[in-house]
Design a protein around this nucleic acid. Structure first.
Lengths: 223, 223
DNA sequence: CCTACCGATCGGTAGG
DNA sequence: CCTACCGATCGGTAGG
């Protein structure tokens, strides 16, 4: 359900490297285009976005965009691959910190949710517009996604085998965790009073409870 | 994440009333069109579906559809309003059965999930294509959805005030439950070995755990 | 970065 | 239920 209403306006920049890039450089323009496209794809959809609209946001005409980009499809590919790459990167970092299975599950859930709040536009587009990707990009993204998902499932399984988690199905439990995090990208409001970190912590707690983890409620985070 | 791959082929009929309708009657054709449109909207999107494609499924040309329907938009409106109406109807029936707050929360979660598995195409389209609705339909649907969601939130609140549930936020908990159910419509495979009922029961259990409900694990269902 | 424009697609209508 | 077709939109190219 959550999507409440249309996605609220507001920016969700890919880090713009505030100053380290030569001003007026070609990749600056590319980045501005990507940014405008992201916001439009998120609010009116890939198919619903025209090159003229993207150009409007930069004060130029549609055809002028082609001096900086190859195609509309290229913009989508960059957005979606950037999203999956970043999700996998954060997930790997979370796992690399080690800890018991509850800690690791809690951490990959938290980074999952935090990303979907912080970069809600990338996440929203990344999930919604996968079928707008032409091959072989679509297949590639689906492969990355399967890898991302399998980390959750494997961790749930590990916990269940150790009798730390109690669940009827590793698969369904991990899907439930993934899906409730994805949902965040549809309703999170960055102008609200809650930070992505707070939301991430709360959801990670919900996930652990869902898995029937016996909480010591104290030492789940290392000192 | 879950969407695994493209939505698998397969039918999800609005009940076709096997035989009680006069054969060749006008509403038969209307229903066939609606059915073809549903499957196409679910697999290639509303914007990605052409009238010619819908016609193809019935062995007729695109323009011939207009003898039975008013517009492409009308088809979407019927699908989405049908979905929200049915969800609300089932939810009300679940609440009307009474019981304590855990029982009622468990039941509205179960019907939520069961619908998203049984009618996964309607549900998928109903969530994904809301922004493809023209006004005033879009606003109307969003109103119905808010009503549907609020029942979850109110029930979570009731349980928390009774100290039956323990949750950091009624809102986030209810969104989590709603979103994990919505996710089902993207990955559920009706050809698999698990029934919508089984999935619904399992998810209802996950929801209760998430809310920190103290399970007696026995008398949560009346005799 | 622009205007002019091509080629293709599509929802819907006309008129049988 | 069909063919013929209108009017509008859109991604992308040509050629400055």
């Amino acid at each position: 359900m959550p999507v409440r209403d249309r996605l609220p306006a507001g920016r969700t920049h890919v880090p713009s490297a505030g100053g380290s890039r030569p001003p007026g450089g070609p990749s600056d323009r590319h980045h501005e285009i990507l940014d405008a496209a992201l916001e439009l794809f998120a609010t009116v959809g890939y198919g619903g976005t025209t090159m003229a609209q993207i150009g409007d946001r930069l004060g130029i005409r549609g055809p002028s965009l082609y001096k900086h980009i190859a195609s509309k499809q290229e913009l989508l590919v960059e957005i979606v691959t950037g999203m999956m790459t970043e999700l996998l990167r954060r997930q790997q970092a979370a796992l690399a910190r080690g800890g018991d299975v509850s800690e690791r599950l809690q951490r990959i859930t938290a980074v999952h949710v935090q990303y979907h709040a912080e970069q809600r536009y990338e996440a929203f587009v990344g999930h919604r517009e996968i079928d707008s990707l032409e091959e072989p990009h679509r297949t590639h993204i689906l492969d990355l996604r399967r890898e991302y998902e399998s980390r959750f499932r494997e961790l749930v399984q590990e916990g269940r085998e150790l009798d730390v988690f109690r669940t009827a199905s590793d698969r369904w439990s991990s899907y439930a965790i993934l899906d409730m995090g994805i949902g965040v990208s549809a309703w999170y409001n960055p102008s609200g009073s809650v930070s992505p970190e707070q939301l991430a912590d709360t959801y990670a707690e919900l996930a652990l409870r869902m898995l029937g983890a016996e909480r010591d409620s104290a030492n789940t985070r290392e000192g």
